[in-house]
């Protein structure tokens, strides 16, 4: 589903040049649950942004669902993104002016779906996340855990092939964090591919594979289920 070859991202300002990703290559298969770990500033989020088609790499190739997408225009990326990828962020990133229902509905609007179809899908996503009773509430009226459930509902409502989660439990207490992780795990069991950036070893345990980054490079790839560690570089 995903294959990167020598993915490199360099940020330049007038005085400083920072290599955020340095020739990163890996592959993720459909239905996998992969965690990306590493210390702050190692390039996790940059990698996730590129994988989520929010940003283009400086160099290297990125194959997503069989197409090379690293040179896609903004419009092409937006198009591919809305059809295939759902996002869950650490700070939820819900739109404060929209209520729970409207937030979850938003991706379907951009997909141009009919309102009856939207209603059906949103209801089902809310039910799945068990927040139907909060549908009329605004994000600021909800607890962190509830907000993240809304965010997950929004991420799954369009049935994307891939869900990208950027520290989904970072702003939650352990009980709510576990709740969200269980949701992600059950989505994965339903066949959705999940890539998650996390600092938490506990959260990473939910994944089938852990990619560890350091200074923009993969230092190891830990495949669980008894398989041995396999250095990539």
């Amino acid at each position: 589903m995903i294959r990167t070859v020598n993915l490199t991202k360099i940020f330049r300002t007038d005085e400083v040049e920072t290599t955020a990703l340095n020739k990163v290559s890996f592959e993720i298969k459909k239905g996998e649950f992969v965690a990306i770990m590493g210390p702050s500033g190692c390039g996790k989020s940059t990698l996730l942004n590129i994988l989520g088609l929010l940003d283009n790499p400086s160099e290297g190739e990125y194959f997503f669902l069989g197409s090379e997408v690293s040179r896609f225009s903004e419009k092409q990326r937006a198009n591919s993104r809305k059809q295939n990828i759902g996002f869950v962020f650490q700070n939820f990133n819900l739109i404060d002016e929209l209520n729970v229902y409207e937030n979850v509905e938003l991706p379907l609007i951009y997909l141009g779906m009919s309102s009856s179809e939207r209603k059906k899908r949103v209801e089902s996503a809310l039910e799945q996340m068990q927040i139907t009773h909060r549908r009329k509430h605004f994000p600021l009226q909800l607890s962190g855990g509830q907000q993240q459930r809304v965010a997950v509902a929004r991420a799954v409502v369009a049935n994307p092939h891939l869900i990208l989660a950027d520290e989904p439990t970072g702003n939650l207490d352990s009980a709510h964090g576990e709740e969200v992780m269980n949701l992600l795990a059950s989505l994965n069991q339903g066949g959705t591919t999940i890539i998650m950036v996390t600092h938490s070893q506990r959260d990473a345990e939910y994944a089938q594979r852990i990619i560890r980054l350091f200074d923009g490079q993969i230092i190891n790839e830990n495949i669980k289920s008894g398989r041995s560690e396999m250095p990539v570089i």
Partner: peptide
């Protein structure tokens, strides 16, 4: 800005 960012992530193009 944040709202614009979210909408873009969710698939909004510039025109919309």
């Amino acid at each position: 800005a944040r709202e614009v960012g979210i909408r873009k992530v969710l698939g909004a193009d510039r025109l919309s």
